[in-house]
C-alpha cells in the first residue's frame, strides 16, 4: 500500500542521505537556490487538535494523548511541511474542550517534530526501486523520485531484460534495482499526502554510489 502509512522510522532512510544536516526551529524556508547548502530536514513546532475518547481520561491522559499523537502524525505528509519523520517532544497541551454529543475531548497540542521536505536543487541519495525505459524511480525514505532518461547521462543506455538497467557503453556503471544513486532534485510536486520529485543524475558527482551487482 502506501508507503507513507509506514512510519519512516521503521524504514531507515537510505544511508547518508538521512544525515541531519540542519535542525532549525524555523519553518521550512522557500526553495533554496542551487549552490546553497541544502536543507531538507527541519525541526519545527506544529500544532494539532487531538480528539480523545473519554475512556482515556485518567491519570495517563497525557501519555495516551502523546502516543495517539505519535500514531496519528508520524509518517504523514503535509504539503506545507513535508513528511513528519519523528516527534521529538510535546511543548504544550492546551485545555481540553468537550465535544457536545460525543463526549470526545479536543486538546490543542503543540509538538516539536522533525520534518523531511526536499527542495529543488538539493542533492540526496536514494535507492533505485524500479527501472524502465523512461527512466528510473528511486526512493529516499518516503519520497519517491523519478529520474527520466533525459536526465540520465547520454552515455547510459537502457537495457531491457530480466533486470532492466541503465548501463554505460563500457559496462562500468550500471543502474538497476537496489542501486544507490546520488541525485539532484530538479522539481517537486507536493500534494496533500505525497511528495513526488524528479531528479537528475546528469551532473558532476552524481550517479551510482553503490551497485548491488558489484558488491556481490
Amino acid at each position: 500500500m502506501d508507503s507513507l502509512s509506514q512510519p519512516p522510522s521503521k524504514r531507515p532512510l537510505s544511508s547518508s542521505a538521512t544525515d541531519f544536516r540542519e535542525v532549525s526551529l524555523a519553518s521550512p524556508p522557500a526553495a533554496d537556490d542551487e549552490g546553497e547548502r541544502s536543507k531538507m530536514f527541519f525541526h519545527i513546532v506544529l500544532e494539532r487538535n487531538m480528539q480523545l475518547h473519554p475512556r482515556h481520561f485518567g491519570p495517563h491522559l497525557r501519555d495516551k494523548l502523546v502516543s495517539k499523537l505519535i500514531k496519528d502524525v508520524e509518517g504523514t505528509c503535509s504539503g506545507r511541511h513535508g513528511f513528519v519523520v519523528a516527534i521529538t517532544g510535546v511543548e504544550d497541551v492546551g485545555k481540553g474542550l468537550i465535544r457536545e454529543g460525543t463526549g470526545y475531548v479536543t486538546f490543542p497540542v503543540k509538538y516539536q517534530c522533525v520534518v523531511f521536505r526536499p527542495f529543488k536543487g538539493e542533492i540526496l541519495e536514494a535507492v533505485v526501486t524500479m527501472v524502465n525505459k523512461m527512466g528510473f524511480f528511486a526512493e529516499a525514505g518516503p519520497v519517491q523520485i523519478f529520474v527520466s532518461n533525459h536526465l540520465i547521462p547520454d552515455d547510459m543506455e537502457f537495457q531491457s531484460g530480466d533486470v532492466p538497467n541503465y548501463t554505460t557503453s563500457d559496462g562500468s556503471v550500471k543502474i538497476q534495482k537496489e542501486s544507490e544513486v546520488r541525485l539532484k532534485i530538479i522539481g517537486t510536486r507536493v500534494d496533500a499526502t505525497e511528495i513526488f520529485c524528479i531528479g537528475t543524475i546528469k551532473d558532476d558527482f552524481l550517479g551510482v554510489i553503490s551497485d548491488p551487482g558489484a558488491a556481490v
Binding site: S148, H150, L151, I185, I186, G187, I198, T200
Partner: peptide, 22 residues
C-alpha cells in the same frame, strides 16, 4: 525550466499535467 509543474492547455495532450523533465 526542468522541474516546473505545468499544465497543458492546448494541443493533443490538453489537460494533462506534469513536471518538466527536459
Amino acid at each position: 525550466k526542468p522541474g516546473d509543474h505545468v499544465k497543458v492547455i492546448s494541443g493533443v495532450q490538453e489537460g494533462a499535467t506534469g513536471m518538466v523533465v527536459k
